[in-house]
């Protein structure tokens, strides 16, 4: 099957320091991909690259069979309409309340659904992440964990073909973390979308991720299933796929 994401030879320098180095990544459609690796290994940057938000210095990014052309506004628009992102640092709009944050990707599509459908979908999404009755609240009234769940709801609301979750359970308690992973798994099954999530919680990831990708020092050093990875020759791969704090 043609991959949804095909990143080849991507490199990126930040003020002279290489943060992505000749990095490859292939995401086959219709499953949950787990991205693991130590802090600072480039997980967030590669997720931003495959969301078209980070333009690499070299290498190519192919999404849905189309090579990303950063100068082509309409082409970028068409791709971005098919991508939903939950950012590691949430990136919720602090000038909007919870409802408007979650509704944002729906409202901003070229052809937005009618208002009552938006209302209904936003409320369903908030119930799913365990935040009913919060629609009217402003973000500062929410705890960090609640904000993370709002960000999840926003990323998932439009049922995008490619959904990106960067540390969806960071700072959440274990019970809620489990629930979020289950939700992401169900979301993927319901939509058939391609999901990629970065996390340190390898244990819970194994329940929903059909495929793992390991990052280290700006490179992807492994792609495959968890069992093979845990028996890899490379000690780094074994370590990252076994226990991660």
């Amino acid at each position: 099957m043609e991959p949804v994401v095909e990143i080849a030879g991507v490199s990126k320098l930040f003020s002279g320091t290489p943060v992505l180095q000749d990095c490859d990544l292939r995401l086959e459609p219709g499953r949950v991909h787990g991205l693991v690796g130590p802090g600072g290994s480039g997980k967030t940057l590669i997720l931003k690259t495959l969301s078209t938000l980070l333009r690499p210095d070299s290498g190519s990014v192919i999404l849905f069979g189309t090579t990303v052309d950063y100068g082509d506004r309409d082409g970028l628009r068409a791709l971005r309409d098919r991508i939903g992102v939950q950012f590691q640092n949430l990136a919720l709009f602090d000038f909007l309340n919870v409802f408007d944050n979650v509704a944002f990707p729906l409202v901003m599509t070229p052809d937005p659904p009618p208002t009552d459908e938006i209302d209904q979908r936003v409320h369903e999404a908030l119930v799913e992440v365990g935040l009913p009755e919060t629609a009217h609240l402003r973000l500062p009234e929410l705890s960090g964990g609640m904000q993370r769940r709002v960000a999840l709801a926003r990323a998932a609301i439009s049922g995008a073909d490619l959904m990106v979750f960067d540390d969806p359970t960071g700072g959440l308690d274990p019970v809620f973390s489990s629930r979020i992973f289950v939700l992401i798994g169900e979301l993927q099954e319901r939509t058939g979308s391609t999901v990629v999530l970065a996390s340190h919680d390898v244990d819970r990831m194994t329940r929903i991720c059909g495929r793992f990708h390991v990052m280290d020092q700006g490179r992807r050093i492994y792609s495959g299933n968890i069992e093979d990875g845990r028996e890899s020759e490379d000690r780094r791969i074994r370590t990252f796929l076994t226990v991660e704090a």
């Binding site: 969301s51 938000l53 628009r77 971005r80 991508i83 992102v85 990136a91 919720l92 709009f93 602090d94």
Partner: peptide, 9 residues
């Protein structure tokens, strides 16, 4: 937040 705007076109 600027990137979040951009990815929502």
């Amino acid at each position: 937040q600027v990137e979040a705007l951009e990815v929502s076109n």
